[in-house]
Design a protein around this nucleic acid. Structure first.
Lengths: 252, 252
DNA sequence: AGGCGCGTTGCGCATCTTGCAACAGTCATT
DNA sequence: AATGACTGTTGCAAGATGCGCAACGCGCCT
């Protein structure tokens, strides 16, 4: 809506792919070099862009700081963290917390497994939305039309033979998840990794976040992991209670 | 330099403090509501800003994704990661990788301790620049005038009695670090936590990153931690060699 | 030396942004 | 139920602001 800002912001994803010099930026924006220069300068002043020694531009440090601050300010995250740690102490596996936002599901907290074999994931990284257990819970709670629209729009990459293959299957899965109130991912993303997840609800019953426990086959079988379901659900409910203000946590 | 972009970007740190509604944003920017609205819309389209259910604005998901991508593209990080993991396997403690950029030092990678007691830190979080071992190494390598200017400008918070108290002491410490080629932080940030750090150098000998091993007193004493110094330095040198192209790592 | 490529600057024109004023919802109050 | 206050939203005209051009400076390679 605002041309100048629009152009300036378009630089960011472009630089996310890797460093670029002034000419490249100007070209890919379709503007004159002098224009690109002024935009980059402004971005630079705000620390969103960094000029490395070879004069090329990279994304800057303030971006990390911003993302960090933003994350710390999420109320769910703050409330949930202690519960996640406790759950990790009890079962030892990797625990994740995720939220849905604008067609994406992303991890906003994580407690690492205490077993030597760990799964790869990073806070802030968008989740494999068609297969992850937490994603299923978050999407299952969207209003009907929004859910359908999103499902149609998504790609369905076959990470493994057990990945969700297409929109129809996904919507069916979401319906089931919505019914049962919990979700799993059994080798749908990485062949040897299973997850169990439960929803965290706000005062109005809407799902505001989802949490999961993940573990590789080599540590526990899928069946063994499923025995943790009650524990996971109890933890999620405890967080829900505290988040919606029903259970006043210990004062801070 | 570009007014519109400047204003738009000023919204981000503002929202980082917490959600705000249109009026608040307009006020703090000192512009008309309609102006603020258009800026927010543009930010929204790019996903940098999210509109939560109560209509207030928050920082958006794409910000995380961008920060994430930016991090993944740092060459040092990519090269170093395997080495950090190996070091962690050997000593079991928390391993950090940090870089300097525009007056800040920030962690760009981390391998968690395998001991139950862990220190708190997060990738992307700015480091306590006046006390952290990695910060000392990175700043010690700055050109004389820049180093001095920065030292004068910094705050020197007394996290503990052993924190660096003022610029003079800091500059002296940096000189020593520069000489010996490694650095420590013995309880300068958290009373019970010690770190040993070593520099990673590019082909031209400049310090491009720094890595450290950290452990709380309850796990190993400072003296015991210091016995790891040779190992840390060897790891750092290995990364330096690979980064500067001298040691061609296994092909990707 | 010469030429090429890149980043940088000043400037006039036109565009895009701005603030206004009026409108449309939503909620609380009377 | 009607009133008022509040917030977010739209169309518009005036002019400040960002735009591309062309020329310059600089380092690098031939």
């Amino acid at each position: 809506m605002s041309q100048t800002v629009d152009r300036a912001l378009s630089i960011l994803p472009l630089l996310a792919e890797g460093p670029a010099d002034l000419g490249q930026v100007a070209d890919r924006l379709g503007v004159h070099k002098s224009t690109a220069l002024r935009l980059l300068r402004t971005l630079h002043e705000h620390g969103l862009v960094y000029r490395q020694s070879d004069q090329r531009y990279r994304l800057g440090a303030r971006l990390f700081a911003l993302a960090q601050e933003a994350m710390e300010n999420l109320d769910v995250r703050e409330i949930a963290h202690a519960h996640l740690v406790r759950l990790n102490e009890q079962c030892g596996h990797t625990v994740h917390l995720a939220v849905y936002e604008e067609n994406e599901v992303l991890y906003i907290d994580k407690v690492e497994s205490r077993y030597p074999v760990r799964m790869y994931s990073r806070i802030g990284k968008p989740v494999a939305i068609t297969v992850a257990a937490v994603a299923k819970l978050l999407l299952a709670d969207l209003p009907e039309h929004e859910r359908r629209a999103l499902a149609e729009k998504l790609d369905y990459p076959m990470y493994t033979p057990r990945s969700t293959p297409h929109a129809a299957a996904f919507l069916q899965e979401l319906a089931a998840v919505r019914e049962q109130g919990w979700a799993t991912d059994l080798g749908g993303h990485e062949e040897s990794i299973n997850c169990v997840a439960a929803p965290i609800r706000g005062a109005d019953g809407r799902v505001v976040a989802a949490m999961s426990v993940s573990a590789p086959n080599v540590v526990v079988t899928a069946d063994e992991l499923l025995t943790l379901l009650p524990l996971v659900r109890r933890t999620a409910d405890a967080i829900s209670g505290e988040y919606s203000g029903r259970t006043p946590a210990e004062p801070t």
